[in-house]
Amino acid sequence: MKSCAPLSPALAMIVLIVLSIAIAGCSEGVVSYDILVTKFDAGGHTAWSTKIGSGNQNLATAVTETPDAGYAVAGLVADSPRATAYPRVVRLDPDGRVLWDRTLDLSDVYSVAITGAPDGGFVVAQNINNFDSGKVSKIDADGQPVWNRTIDSALRAIIPARDGGFVLAGSRTFYIDANGTILWNRSFSSTSIREAAGGGFIAERSGVPYPDTSVFYLDNNGTVVWTTPVGSRESGKITSLFEDPTRDI
């Protein structure tokens, strides 16, 4: 069983995504994956647990909470380990029941990130080739497509911005408006990004496959105000960032 890192806990609840491994066709060495989404209460007791599978390769790479206290799980699905992996979003109600399950399009993806949109829908960032190809998709609250944008960048993370737009981290760093129009596009790479308390954004990039491991601060226009190397410049990996009330990182 392989576990994803836990999400930042809410005050009373914690949600974990666990990727469980089931063996099928052992003589051929075929391994299939199901997704297990489990919610724990403040005392660590299981509130509910939902298995999502199709008998194929089912992987989850991101989750976001919805306005009704449910969840949207993003990931990918493939018929076999060597088959094309399609982006996928599964919507759960507050009790973990599946409301809908959508395969978005025909992109062959490595990972999928997701965030909620102000209108109750979702914006999904697809990492297509881990280098210079990605796609951003808007779906409505029922999982139906609204718009798609192809972007010349691998996309590894997406966050909402205060003005209703979205910031994308990847082999390039982007800011898009609510309609998917690119407002700024910066050539520096980033692995993850978050909105800074005092305005602007805090981003990080890890050393592999990037040229160095660093933390950097961007203003609202995407201009790098400062950047600081961290640890080994060649092989470091940042796994978490935190900004305290004094804005130290």
Results as ranks from 00 to 15, higher is better:
residue 91 R to S: 12
residue 93 D to R: 01
residue 93 D to S: 10
residue 101 D to K: 02
residue 101 D to T: 04
residue 103 T to H: 00
residue 104 L to R: 01
residue 105 D to G: 12
residue 107 S to G: 13
residue 108 D to N: 15
residue 110 Y to Q: 07
residue 110 Y to N: 14
residue 113 A to L: 06
residue 117 A to R: 12
residue 118 P to R: 13
residue 121 G to M: 04
residue 121 G to V: 07
residue 121 G to A: 11
residue 123 V to K: 04
residue 124 V to H: 02
residue 126 Q to V: 01
residue 126 Q to G: 03
residue 127 N to S: 06
residue 127 N to K: 11
residue 130 N to A: 15
residue 132 D to W: 07
residue 132 D to P: 00
residue 133 S to G: 02
residue 136 V to F: 03
residue 137 S to A: 14
residue 137 S to E: 14
residue 138 K to G: 08
residue 139 I to K: 06
residue 141 A to H: 06
residue 141 A to G: 11
residue 142 D to M: 06
residue 142 D to E: 06
residue 143 G to W: 00
residue 146 V to I: 11
residue 146 V to Q: 10
residue 147 W to C: 11
residue 150 T to L: 08
residue 151 I to V: 13
residue 152 D to G: 07
residue 152 D to Y: 10
residue 155 L to G: 12
residue 156 R to F: 15
residue 156 R to A: 14
residue 156 R to N: 13
residue 158 I to S: 09
residue 159 I to H: 11
residue 159 I to Y: 09
residue 159 I to K: 11
residue 163 D to H: 10
residue 165 G to F: 11
residue 165 G to V: 12
residue 167 V to Q: 14
residue 169 A to C: 05
residue 169 A to R: 03
residue 170 G to F: 03
residue 170 G to I: 02
residue 176 I to Q: 12
residue 177 D to G: 13
residue 177 D to Y: 11
residue 183 L to N: 10
residue 183 L to M: 12
residue 189 S to Y: 04
residue 191 T to M: 00
residue 191 T to I: 00
residue 194 R to W: 05
residue 194 R to F: 10
residue 199 G to N: 05
residue 199 G to Y: 12
residue 202 I to M: 13
residue 203 A to R: 07
residue 204 E to S: 11
residue 205 R to E: 10
residue 208 V to R: 14
